[in-house]
Amino acid sequence: MTLWHRSLKILQAIAQQRSYRFRLNSFKGFVSLALVGVILSVALAACGGNEANSSTETPNASPVSASKQNVELTLVSFAVTKAAHEAIIPKFVEQWKKEHNQTVTFKQSYGGSGSQTRAVIDGLEADVVHLALAGDTEKIQKAGLIESGWEKEVPNNGIVSKSVAAIITRSGNPKNIKTWADLEKDGVKLITADPKTSGIAKWNFLALWNSVIKTGGDEAKATEFVTKVYKNVPILTKDAREATDAFAKQGQGDVLINYENEVILAQQKGEKVDYVVPEVNISIDNPIAVVDKNVDKHGTREVAEGFVKFLYSPEAQQEFVKLGFRPVDEKLAQTKEVTDKYPKVKTLGIVQDFGGWSEVDKKFFADGGIFDQVQAKIKR
């Protein structure tokens, strides 16, 4: 383009001189200026043609990220995945650099799944969201940021990590808590998060509800049970991390419901934790999704999809297992390491048993739903 730029400058100078001396009654001047205009147009078209050709050299590459040596991704996730992602991200960065000669850096945000969902809808420009439940991802889809069918673009219907609910007790289990039913006893104080802001709190509520339904109870009995249990909750925290801090650091409550992976992680850090994994339980399934509108805006689709794909790799799934998540890969789930590590659950409920997240949110957690009705009956 250097030669064309020089030619254009010369032509522009000629045009300026000609136009300065141009007279309407000068036919010769008119023709000269017209010729300059034609030449100038041809030069501009040639330049434009070269630019068009250069932009089609890599038709499959992301229009922005492919031309960048460094690419930044924003990952928005729920609180308890932080340790796992901090172990996995460096492995992905190393692999991507080796395969694509690009350096990927990450902005990371962790918090209650409900709060994170609202933040993304309100303008937090996440490239990838890893949330506590598919219902939160669906809310982002309904807001127009994620295209429909996101769960079909990756393995396992978009579920990349999973766990079950665990009941954590004080040392020695002085209240003798063994099952969900023990949580309705008088004198038992339970710490759990608020389902209005926390994904785990929704899972906790469903685990309690599921424990009645899966053992032959009806919805009236389930409502009565969860009402008694929530009467024993002195405080509803914002998210799982705050619930853990209230129980472990501030000494509040006799028991805590939390993800099993959180308990395992605490034990790995040297903490002594007494806990029970009830035999009737709920499969806590956590989805991953690319935020289509944002990656297209940022030009990061290729890298974002690469990261999501990497999370399903044996290498990444092994990191999830190390940090207490149950594997989504069935082959890995059958290994001795996994079967020795995790107590067997005899009766495992799934959210589809209750109609999927759209129905669950509407029935239990929407304004005026069963959770609000339960709370209205409780005098704190």
Results as ranks from 00 to 15, higher is better:
D274I: 04
V273T: 14
V345T: 15
W209R: 08
T335D: 02
K336C: 01
I168A: 12
V93S: 11
R6P: 00
N101K: 11
G49L: 03
L11H: 00
E337F: 01
V226M: 10
I140L: 07
V93M: 08
E260S: 12
I213R: 14
S198V: 07
T56Y: 02
F78W: 13
Q252R: 15
S62G: 14
E184G: 11
V328Q: 00
V233G: 01
I146N: 00
S115K: 13
K221H: 07
G29Y: 06
A87M: 07
W96F: 08
A66F: 12
L133S: 15
V345M: 13
A220H: 03
K363T: 11
L348Y: 09
N232P: 01
L256E: 05
F78K: 03
A366C: 08
R23E: 15
I257G: 01
S283R: 03
K178D: 13
P278H: 13
A134R: 15
R18H: 04
A84F: 02
N281K: 09
L8W: 12
P63C: 08
K142M: 02
W203T: 10
A126G: 08
F247D: 00
V338W: 05
G112T: 10
F247N: 07
K322P: 07
D367S: 14
P343E: 06
Y259G: 03
E72H: 06
V64H: 10
K249N: 09
L73N: 11
N294C: 02
A193T: 09
F225I: 11
G216I: 12
L323C: 03
V233Q: 06
K178Q: 15
L183H: 13
R380I: 02
T300M: 07
K152Y: 03
D285N: 12
I284G: 01
L44Q: 10
A201L: 06
K238P: 02
E219A: 04
V129T: 08
T169H: 05
S32D: 13
S283L: 09
Q12I: 08
K9A: 10
A13N: 05
A193I: 04
S7R: 15
E94F: 07
N60D: 13
T347V: 07
N210H: 06
S148W: 00
I235D: 10
Q17S: 13
K238E: 12
G356W: 01
F320M: 10
P90R: 02
L332W: 01
D372L: 08
V212N: 00
V303N: 05
V351M: 13
N210K: 05
R18M: 09
I140Y: 03
E94H: 14
N294T: 10
E151P: 04
V360P: 04
G324P: 08
Q116E: 09
N204C: 11
T58K: 11
K97Q: 13
N281H: 12
V328I: 11
L208C: 06
E359K: 15
A13Q: 12
G217P: 04
G299A: 08
G251V: 06
Q108N: 13
E72V: 04
H100L: 03
T103L: 06
Y110M: 03
F307N: 09
